[in-house]
Amino acid sequence: MRRPFDPRLEFALDRQSRGAAVAFGSAADAGEVTVIAKVKNLDAWMKRTDVRHGVIIPLPDESSNIVTARVPVARLEKLHNSDDILSIEAARPLRPELARTATDIRAVAPSNDQRYRADGVVVGIVDIGCDFAHRNFVDGKGNSVIAEIWDQDGPVDPTEAQNIPEGRVYSRSEIEAALATSSPYDTLGYGPEVDQPPTSIGSHGTHVMDIACGTGIGTKVPGIAPGAEVVFVDVAINDIAWSGEEVLDYSFWGFGYSP
């Protein structure tokens, strides 16, 4: 039995047959769709000249690979029927859905009710990028919810080198003093307007922190545990390969990335 055709790809074929414009995916040109496919013969896939190749993601069992590509709509049916392609689907649009977090993890929805707050709880986050000046991490009185930030890529404080030999730790008092100025990132010496790429693109940690315990002051959507304080470890990433084949040889171990 043949595998079912992805409805989004069928829609693209229908639009093209009626002479309507087709372009699915942010990178797709007119008459193209961006697809994600599972292929069992990577060599055969890479030799195809009827697609514009994208990313290759090897699967653990080594029997197949996940690939992305930009494909002319006219070639979709042939690709779908190819024995080397196990599945092919149109790329899906991404949308921010922070408001759905509590529902998706079956947590009690955050509210102003004290029973659903996390005062006295400390949340530890090990990630990349902590936007300490965002309104969702400052309460209504201007106090930061962040107790400490350990920036492993930061300059070592000579007075603390014995205790903290790698990077720099910023205390709540230092963070709040910076928040009281017109240039908090420059004052603290840390943050998205201070760090250079690739660190400056590290918004993942900020997103995770907001889901966990953001106040909701800026976005009207509080985190799962409003009232908790945060200890944030911004891991060292100065040895990361951000392009080329070496990217796949790095793993996240908590104190940076190691081969």
Rank of each mutant, 00 (worst) to 15 (best):
M1A: 05
M1R: 07
M1Y: 14
P7Q: 05
R18C: 09
G19T: 10
A23G: 01
G25R: 07
G25V: 02
A30D: 15
E32T: 01
V33A: 06
V33Y: 02
V35C: 03
I36R: 11
I36L: 12
K40F: 01
N41H: 04
N41F: 01
L42M: 06
W45E: 00
M46C: 07
K47E: 07
K47R: 12
T49A: 04
T49N: 08
V51M: 11
V51I: 12
R52F: 08
H53L: 09
I56T: 04
L59W: 03
E62Y: 06
E62S: 06
N65Y: 11
V67P: 00
V67F: 09
T68S: 15
P72V: 03
L76W: 09
L76V: 10
K78V: 08
K78L: 12
L79T: 02
L79C: 09
L79E: 13
I85H: 01
L86K: 03
R92Q: 14
L98S: 10
R100T: 03
T103G: 09
D104W: 09
D113A: 01
Q114L: 13
Q114I: 09
V121I: 15
V126T: 04
V126R: 02
G129Y: 02
F132H: 02
A133D: 11
A133C: 14
A133V: 04
F137E: 09
V138N: 01
G140L: 11
I146S: 02
I146C: 09
A147P: 05
A147T: 01
I149W: 10
D151Y: 14
Q152N: 05
Q152L: 15
D153A: 04
G154S: 00
P155D: 08
P155W: 11
D157V: 01
E160H: 10
A161D: 03
A161K: 08
N163R: 14
P165C: 01
E166H: 14
R168A: 03
V169N: 03
S171D: 14
R172S: 05
I175D: 04
A178F: 15
L179V: 00
A180C: 05
T181S: 00
S182H: 03
S183A: 07
S183D: 15
D186K: 07
T187A: 07
L188D: 00
P192L: 11
E193S: 10
V194D: 00
S200P: 10
I201Y: 12
G202S: 02
S203L: 15
T206A: 02
M209I: 06
A212K: 10
G214H: 08
T215Y: 12
T215S: 12
T215F: 09
G223C: 08
I224L: 15
I224Y: 06
G227E: 13
G227P: 10
A228W: 14
E229F: 07
V233L: 12
D234M: 03
I237L: 06
I237F: 11
I240D: 09
W242H: 06
W242S: 09
E245G: 06
E246W: 11
E246Q: 15
V247R: 13
F252K: 05
W253M: 11
G254W: 10
G254L: 04
S258L: 13
